[in-house]
Write a protein that binds this DNA or RNA. Structure first.
Length: 759
DNA sequence: TTAGGGTTAG
């Protein structure tokens, strides 16, 4: 999936880059960053924002003030309560401040209002003020305060409240008892929680649900299931809690079984069940079940709010059904998507999470253009943008090489003063790495300074991608010494680094470390890395033995890697043997077909070479045409082999011809072995001479000053001859040339490449 | 008492 945009959507790339430029201009005046979750509610202070009911409430409020009744305690409490119920806490606070007479109800109404919107800090502040004024809290006040303590992890204050309740002889009803139980469970103080649970006289289903949810939260699945099974009456929340908790703990299959059991024998779904069920089928990617749940939402006439809509969008996106994640701005944003009559019609997106889900859905499915278009639309429509959206957009920039846009979004994040968290940091590192700027990737890495494994893995991968294998290994060692546990992806990246840098011993050691110390079972990716490690180092026999010893002969990816090594080390006989094996397994990818065809071409077996190509056609294997890009003064210039469409083509070809002549004088010679067509000698050399990367480089040289580094991108691997050509060019012209291919970067300088001719 | 979106490799 690397560089998906470049590899699979060549024709639209220029259009897309124009879009990027347009977006860059559009961005600056509108983009604002909203703090995480700040959209949960808002203080409405403008009459224009109010509903009819709110306007009536304001009218009533004004009348009450006019006749001086606000100082009547009951009337004041009534108005305050109405504002709290309409979640207009700005006005509620104002009424509260204006009231000269307040009683415990006054304080409780306001405190419970803030507790309901999870504004715990305000709740605790008000509670302190209330105590200072000598007002004695009641059960409702205490429940709200405890709720805020548990959401803010304020265990000590909660314990203080608990003590106060005991000292003052307040009766524990089920609500107060459950609030306290929830506090201990949320703060993971299970000693207190269990003691309290046992001592509670008024235990209800809610008490059990809190304990079940808490057990799942700390990963005690057995205890949770035991409690769940022993509970004679299970309400809908019990089912929801246990299904969601199991899913969060990674027991998705068990969660699914319980969902089926719930459908059969349990209570009817509520809104929570729908969102949990949709999240479950998203993570399991069971589209059919997801559709059934969606059908149930419609059948039950559940009002599709932002939350359920987000879950629906996410479910369809995770199943790769972007059309079904139907969106109202389809015509505007995804204009090239076909209308699907079966598509479920969703509501207009009014919720920031739904928008960012849609953006990430496009990114996860490799549709970077649509992600950027949606983002542009959001910016233009002044929809709030938060860290989630930005993280996805940076990811889109990384994978499509939109460096300028990525940099601008980064600048705006800095300007907004937002802290860069591990998710965004990893995304930014990846963007700078994939756009060829390793220095800025390091800067983000140091600045983020987090023990997050993805952050470290991104940086290790960055070093590997830029040919700095030893540095990648060093960073890996630093990470281990800091006590950070590597995951399976980290091992893929460090093994890749070893294989690309020829670090045979280190690679073998890390493979053992992964299994023996970290207990990670090697997957096909790790085995492939190991075969690559031996193969690239020329240990073909060792690689072959590794495949047999580990029982990998059915893994076609492993053989494909081995094939590339055979080719690299010019062991044509072995390469043919592997290719034919893969051909019979029907597991060749486009690259391997081309390789096999090349092998036959080298041996002048033209009929067999032609047969391979016809097999490719019969089996529908598509080879993407090679294409290279160079950006000159904000303009992207794309070239394919033998391209004559560029306005300056005459100049490019004349210069290239002259350059090849000069290079030959200093030792460069064309490697005609790699010509796929059945042509020989001069004609083959001629075809090599017009490979897309040579054209892009020639254009770069004639269009820039002599000291400017030349950066080009390619949608396939660089061929041997072009690699050689670029090395000589960097030496002859004393020019730095940086090439990004499908998997990595090549930094050419003084006739050498950072990959050490190992790619 | 229970529910939503973002990051790393091949």
């Amino acid at each position: 999936m690397v560089w998906g945009c470049l590899r699979t959507r060549c024709s639209s790339s220029i259009h897309y880059l124009k879009q990027v430029r347009f977006l860059s201009v559009a961005l600056s005046p509108h983009l604002e960053f909203y703090p995480y979750k700040s959209h949960a509610y808002h203080y409405s202070s403008c009459a224009n924002d109010c509903s009819t009911d709110e306007i009536d409430l304001h009218t009533l409020h004004a009348k009450v003030i006019k006749v001086g009744s606000l100082q009547n305690l009951d009337m004041g409490n009534h108005i305050l309560n109405l504002y709290v119920k309409s979640q207009n806490l700005g006005h509620a606070q104002k009424v509260f401040d204006d009231m000269l007479n307040r009683d415990v109800r006054t304080w409780t109404i306001l405190i419970s209002g803030f507790a309901r919107v999870s504004s715990g800090g305000t709740v605790l502040k008000l509670f302190r003020e209330m105590q200072n004024e000598g007002v004695c809290p009641n059960q409702f006040t205490l429940s709200s305060v405890l709720k805020s303590c548990s959401s803010l992890n304020e265990l000590n204050l909660g314990k203080e409240v608990h003590g106060w309740i005991v000292v003052n002889g307040i009766v524990f009803d089920s609500v107060l008892g459950n609030s306290l139980l929830d506090l201990y469970v949320k703060c993971e103080d299970f000693g207190y929680a269990n003691k309290l649970f046992e001592s509670m006289r008024e235990r209800d289903t809610v008490s059990w649900n809190i304990l079940i949810g808490g057990s799942l939260h700390i990963g005690d699945v057995d205890k949770a299931i035991e409690l769940f099974r022993s509970l004679p009456f299970k309400d809908v929340a019990t089912w929801n809690t246990v299904i969601d908790g199991l899913m969060q703990d990674g027991f998705e299959r068990t969660a699914l079984e319980l969902l089926y059991e719930m459908v059969k024998n349990g209570p009817l779904f509520n809104r929570f069940t729908f969102t949990i069920a949709l999240a479950l089928v998203s993570s399991l990617s069971i589209l059919e079940l997801g559709k059934q749940i969606h059908g149930r939402v419609l059948r039950f006439r559940i009002h599709v709010t932002g939350l359920i809509q987000t879950c629906l969008i996410n479910m369809y996106c995770k199943s790769g059904k972007l059309d079904k994640a139907s969106i109202p701005f389809r015509e505007t944003v995804a204009c090239d998507r076909k209308e699907n009559s079966e598509a479920f019609c969703l509501q207009p997106l009014t919720d920031i999470v739904s928008w960012s889900t849609m953006v990430s859905g496009f990114v996860q499915n490799g549709e970077y253009e649509d992600a950027l278009k949606t983002f542009t639309y959001m910016v233009h429509e002044q929809v709030e943008v938060d860290l989630f959206t930005v993280t996805s957009i940076i990811c889109a920039c990384a994978n499509s090489g939109a460096f300028e846009l990525g940099r601008q979004v980064h600048a705006l994040i800095e300007k907004s003063g937002h802290r860069i968290d591990a998710h965004l940091g990893s995304s930014l590192i990846d963007m700078y790495v994939k756009c060829g700027n390793l220095e800025d990737a390091w800067m983000i890495f140091k600045q983020t300074n987090d023990g997050n494994i993805v952050l470290w893995t991104s940086m290790i991968s960055g070093c590997a991608m830029h040919g700095q294998g030893r540095k990648a290994v060093w960073l890996f060692e630093c990470m281990i010494s800091e006590g950070i546990t590597p995951n399976e992806v980290t091992f893929v990246t460090v093994l890749t680094a070893c294989s690309h840098a020829g670090l045979l011993e280190e690679g073998s050691r890390y493979f053992r470390l992964m299994k023996e110390v970290y207990g990670i079972h090697p997957g096909v990716e790790h085995f492939t890395c190991m075969v690559d490690l031996y193969g690239r180092a020329g240990r073909l026999k060792q690689a072959k033995n590794f495949i047999h010893e580990n029982g990998l002969s059915q893994m076609s990816a492993v053989w494909r890697s081995f094939l590339a090594s055979c080719w690299l080390h010019k062991n044509i006989e072995m390469a043919r043997w592997v290719s034919e094996k893969l051909l019979h397994l029907n597991s060749l990818d486009a690259g391997s077909y081309v390789l096999l065809s090349n092998i036959y071409a080298i041996e002048h077996r033209w009929d067999e070479a032609a047969h391979v190509r016809s097999l490719m056609q019969q089996r529908g294997v598509k080879k993407h045409p090679a294409q290279s890009w160079i950006q000159i003064k904000n303009q992207v210039h794309a070239f394919i082999m033998g391209d004559r469409s560029h306005p300056q083509d005459a100049e490019i070809y004349t210069y290239l011809d002259k350059l090849i002549g000069r290079l030959k004088e200093v030792g460069y010679s064309s490697d005609v072995h790699l010509v796929m067509q059945d042509v020989e000698g001069e004609q083959g050399e001629m075809l090599l001479g017009v490979h897309s990367e040579k054209l892009a480089i020639a254009y770069g040289i004639i269009s820039t000053s002599s000291r400017t580094p030349i950066r080009i991108m390619k949608n396939l691997r660089v061929c041997n001859d072009c690699h050689n050509f670029i090395k000589y060019t960097s030496l002859l012209l004393d020019r730095e040339i940086i090439v990004r291919d499908t998997h990595r970067f090549h930094h050419f300088k003084y006739g050498h490449c950072s990959c050490g001719d190992y790619w």
